[in-house]
Amino acid sequence: MKKFINHPDAVVREALVGLAAAHPDLRVDLEQQIVVRAEAPRAGKVGLISGGGSGHEPMHAGFVGLGMLDAACPGEVFTSPVPDQIVAAAKAVDGGAGVVHIVKNYTGDVMNFQMAAELSGDEGIEVHSVLVDDDVAVEDSTWTAGRRGTGATMLVEKIAGALAEEGADAAAVAALGTRVNEASASFAIALTACTTPAAGRPGFELPEDEMEVGVGIHGEPGRRREQLRPAREIATMTLEAILAAKPVAAGEDAIVVVNGLGATPLIELYLLYGEVAGLLESAGVRIARNLVGNYVTSLDMAGMSLTVCRADPELLRLWDAPVRTPALRWGV
């Protein structure tokens, strides 16, 4: 394992020390292991809280700030946070208007956030939740754990965050977050496995000429293994999988994110974006906004995810609204 770390057990904590040093405008509570916006709590403002396992940086702590999250709860690497963290975050950001949990659909995340919601409720904090499950590589079914939450999480956090900043109430913020999730679909491809500090070796072996298709963001193998193909074909198959879920139709606007999984250089992500943009144009979909970069990652995995979100004027207005966080920043 080749990583800039001191000890596997200390990675999350020590990275938080660095985050605190780099961003004096964030409040990093090492004891509770939460990251809180400096101004929180703000009277009357809904507190937006997200969290999940670490290893997806900049998500979520990098999205804490004006116009986005009020708090992030980083768990151990790929391990959802515990209820205590989430309750501590709720107490830190509740300004009387309640909090909204943005939860990626993983068994662990769902259960820990649910337990936290009950505990926060006991403390008199109103808790609403948005469940993000945008990954169309996984079939949806009430008999299974359902779809995973991946790249759309950032869109939900940005757009719901903008609405919260405008002063909307918790129910409206949560409803909008849910609407963004429903308008979104994602699909990811990995070229390599990633290595968690604790495991010390890659989660799977992938031959030089193969890729994992339909991976999540936790280093797990994908839905299937295929021969490595040129970027154009990868863009095509990824977009086909997404469009089959019909997040957007010809004539509509979309927000498109070409996201790196951690070890893929930007030059490749831009190349992929060029392919995706050409394909969407042919499909009659207009890309109203885009992001290309590493936003929702999977440690040192080489790979990419594509997220497409149907956009309407309200979503675009909120997307364009000011945001000032370590990882997303515009309009201010």
Binding site: G53, T79, S80, M111
Partner: peptide, 12 residues
Amino acid sequence: LVSKVGGASGPL
């Protein structure tokens, strides 16, 4: 366990 494990196994 609930407050130290996280993940799926912690709450379960």
